[in-house]
Nucleic acid binder design. Structure first.
Lengths: 331, 331
DNA sequence: AGATGTAGATAAAACCTTTTATCAGAAATA
DNA sequence: TATTTCTGATAAAAGGTTTTATCTACATCT
């Protein structure tokens, strides 16, 4: 059956179109019982306003675009969930656009989004230092960057990598560990450098950082290197991500060293498929990606309402998830 | 600056609004050089049609909704990527709606999608036997089910679990293994039963299935059970997913059994973070989720164009990814 | 009584596009 | 020459909503 229009509603409720509209939206001056009646009839005949028509007139589509550079990887997805969670109750829908790191595709998606009159755009990436498409800066609609750094005077949300690193190191120190090593990912990642710096500041002169790739394999190999050269053995290792940590733990077991008794291990990411399954389960740093999504969603929400939001980078705190790889949860 | 409308375009090109529209869309009768001129001017002034206005009139929004029951899990996302990939070049955008298994949220999203006049809906789930919301069946717009079974006469796309299981078992048999065990997930999963059945048919009377949960932990424990009872040891294990396979491999290493020399192992899912990182890397079955997304996208595309698509369940073939856990890739 | 104010309702314009029906003029036909 | 056919262009309607300005009753005030 044909969808009911406001014209049908007006006729069924015995009022004019404008009155029907006013009654539903609470605009204009309308008698209380008229409002009541219109709403009841609307419910009865199943009237729901056409979002296209409404958007055309109000110039607000109540939709936003989410532009992500990867094919729905593990970093962007919790963020997308966070964004969506915040927005759904405000009637905002999300267009998901995976650019797959292809500039042509990014432009194509962007144009389509603009044609659809989206109220705003959230750009997310898999790397903090990945440059967002420059076209974004020139748009007249609000843009928010999540896990990516926008141009000057834009609004960006980051995990606080330095604080996360401190959290890890200080946790180890509080447990009495002093010879703490840092095995991490490639040095050309911004996050890697930020964390390494914070680590160095906490640990002092004895700090030592081993850069490699993000794999379990590298965690393994790093342990071989350490033990091959045979100088003073560390009593704790802070790893750049959970995969490396898993490799480290496995390598230590092969060497018949006990975790955490001999060496404590902390990971980064709290990627549960790994961190819960290591033996012992991994104490790690959670970047609270969903919370980043929440904040980005709230920011875009405020902006579309015309409210102002402070510009610049907001670093959101990480959280330590205590499991058994450092000596058991506080408990 | 204000967005250019077709009125601006018409004025700039010195033609009427209707001519401008006809020229751009190739409708009506229009002189070749007029078309050329209008298009050039459109490019110059940066005119792009307002999708809302167009959709209002044509009753086709060129957008579809993707309803997924989980919070952006690892199964639905590759599918979403596949859908988007196929549709973007046809100008269709995708609203991503995560219902988080909450019926209230599902209804809310569905209503919003209908208000937005989407041209179709793709429903995806994390389990084949999860019942989609019944409201979907009654819609007047096309609906396609991916990784979920719709009602009779609907259109569904599944991975071919039986074929996938056969692929695994036959691969092992071709490598000369004969005592093949199956360690898998909970029996109340449809996919688990289908795979187990196919496994039994391939292996014959010596078949043995151990049901548990989807965890690495269970893979571990299953190996303990097998060896505790001490009868003839298997020479190959077909696992229900990669996590179980990883647990199995680790447990075998603890028992100083060589993989694949003593026992070959095959996984299921090709979840790369696991399957590439086991030692040795895991031979496994890929469900080709992205391809399922492609097919679902193509189906919805045809349907929105009014073409007909055969109803029923289409099972798409799985693919064997040969790594080292069965005796090395063909290389 | 006449002027003023107010509550409640409404007609009509606006948003931007596509599409139908109409029109003017040129070319072809009778 | 008068009539028909055809090309190319256009005015106007339509789509479903919000909003502005207008209108009618009726109550209040002087």
């Amino acid at each position: 059956m044909r969808r009911q229009t406001i014209r049908d509603l007006a006729k069924a409720a015995g009022v004019s179109i404008s009155t029907a509209s006013n009654a539903l939206n609470g605009t204009g001056r309308t008698n209380a019982e008229t409002i009541e009646r219109v709403k009841r009839v609307a419910e009865e005949i199943g009237f729901r306003p056409n979002a296209l028509a409404r958007g055309l007139l109000t110039k607000r589509s109540h939709a936003i675009g989410m532009l992500t550079n990867d094919t729905y990887g593990r970093l962007t997805l919790p963020m997308a969930a966070g964004v969506s969670e915040v927005l759904v109750d405000h009637g905002l829908s999300v267009f998901l656009c995976a650019t797959n790191n292809d500039p042509r595709l990014a432009r194509l998606h962007l144009e389509t989004l603009l044609d659809r009159q989206v109220d705003g755009i959230i750009f997310t990436a898999t790397r903090l230092d990945l440059k967002p498409p420059p076209e974004l800066a020139k748009l007249s609609i609000p843009v928010v960057y999540a896990f990516a750094e926008g141009p000057a005077d834009s609004i960006s949300f980051f995990p606080d990598d330095a604080q996360g690193a401190r959290l890890a190191v200080e946790h180890l120190q509080a447990l009495g560990r002093s010879r703490i090593l840092h095995i991490t990912g490639p040095e050309d990642y911004l996050a890697v450098r930020v964390r390494a710096k914070a680590y160095r500041e906490c640990v002092g002169p004895k700090a030592e950082v081993l850069y490699g790739d993000w794999s379990e394999e590298w965690g393994h190999e790093a342990i071989q290197q350490i033990f091959a050269r045979g100088d003073a053995r560390p009593d704790a290792i802070f790893c750049g991500n959970d995969e490396i940590a898993r490799g480290v733990i496995d390598a230590l077991r092969d060497k018949e060293l006990a975790v955490p008794a001999d060496i404590a291990v902390v990971g980064f990411d709290n990627w549960e498929v790994i961190s819960r399954q290591t033996r012992p389960p991994l104490t790690t740093i959670d970047m609270e990606l969903k919370e980043i999504g929440h904040q980005a969603g709230l920011a875009i929400l405020s902006l579309t309402k015309g409210e102002t939001v402070p510009t610049g980078i907001t670093r959101l705190p990480c959280r330590l998830i205590a499991r058994q790889s450092c000596g058991g949860p506080p408990d």
